[in-house]
Design a protein around this nucleic acid. Structure first.
Lengths: 211, 211
DNA sequence: CGAGGATCTGAGCAAAGGCTCATTTTCTTT
DNA sequence: AAAGAAAATGAGCCTTTGCTCAGATCCTCG
């Protein structure tokens, strides 16, 4: 065994082969997500995560190259979950009349953010500047989806479907995120849902080709 | 001199008496803001700040109890600046007709975020969870202001001015922040301004008492 | 059963960063 | 000019945290 220059003596981030390994990985990710959601990014140290997951620090590093990788994995899972909720809440929306469709959309976007609000926030903080990629990609996808849906409704007669979609998605997203942070309980307020509805309908109406 | 229990041997955060001290404080705050804006919260270590400001760490701690205090001060100054820009961009808006007033509002909100976009972002990250208070308070104030302005226009006949204001302010804020982060250059796009205008007008129209 | 791979352990290293304080330098004031 | 207050210095203490590694333990399979 040549003691030559070896940068990575152990191949980190091994994929679990046995089911035991998979369980460990899940435990780690869940523990991290919990700490992240409850106490914020700063509290989510690798040692704390390992401790909460009930494994040793060494085990954690067997599956994740570094802290970043762990955070990214959490982001990936979170986005997948949101996507699932969104897709589910949106099935069959194309068949609905406009007002009903908008109600569904509002409900869907709210539901999507309700999956793991605290975690969502924490991720937006800790991943920011670095790997918001995952979340960004998702948001871009959502915008594209909505753009598509809008363009499909000739009745709307939008001048710039993509632009309208961007404004709506980012606007609603920001509104919900801010509300979530400052007045979490208010997300249940029916009045807010109505206001969002008004915002969407109004924006759509005002964005028609000739208006 | 009784060597009793002295928790704070030196009264930190002394207010500068001589002009020299004030200059030092400014230098520190500016250095910190710069690092924060250019390299993010993680790079804004107290040592780095002191170095960039051209003073020793000891001096930094003479004026700021701890890192947090420094960040808070930056937040305070930033908010003050935004407020000034906003107020300036909004003077005389009450005398304008609705469409013109909306254009002004859009311009004002964009201008306000353009003051120090990167810093604004960094603050939202680093202060989050702890001292977003300063920024939050400002945003609340803006909402109140807009609510006031909306209620003042009988022509709008809004059912819930405060709610509408909340939706508009948070929505626009989120939209701008997201855009700033992902496509900074796009803030100059006239099409986006038009879209925002459409959003505002549409939302207002759809939020009337009877609509 | 037993070899060999997969998994797990945890003390502790090294780096980083917040912060202190004894001392020196500069300014003000009489 | 000289004392005393204000301001500034910076080596380094101390804590925290990401991460390594040498070895122990657990599983699977022939």
């Amino acid at each position: 065994m040549p003691a030559a220059a070896r940068k990575k003596p152990v191949k980190r981030r091994r994929s679990p082969i046995q089911s035991r390994g998979q369980a460990t990985v899940d435990a780690i990710v869940e523990a991290a997500a919990q700490i992240l959601a409850r106490k914020g990014p700063a509290a989510a140290t690798t040692n704390a995560v390992a401790a909460r997951a009930g494994v040793s620090i060494g085990t954690l590093y067997q599956y994740f190259a570094d802290r970043e990788a762990l955070l990214q994995e959490i982001g990936r899972r979170h986005v997948a979950e949101m996507q699932a909720v969104l897709a589910d809440a949106l099935t069959g929306i194309d068949g609905l009349a406009l007002p009903a469709a908008v109600d569904r959309l509002v409900a869907a976007i709210v539901a999507m953010h309700r999956v793991a609000p605290r975690l969502h926030q924490a991720l937006h903080q800790s991943l920011a500047r670095d790997h918001l990629d995952t979340i960004d990609a998702f948001e871009v996808a959502v915008e594209a989806m909505v753009s598509q849906a809008l363009a499909g409704r000739a009745e709307l007669d939008l001048a710039h479907p993509a632009l309208t979609a961007t404004v709506l998605v980012r606007g609603l997203g920001g509104l919900i995120r801010t509300t979530l942070r400052r007045e979490p309980e208010r997300l249940d307020d029916p009045a807010l849902a109505l206001a969002m509805r008004a915002m969407i309908l109004g924006t759509l109406g005002e964005s028609r080709r000739r208006a």
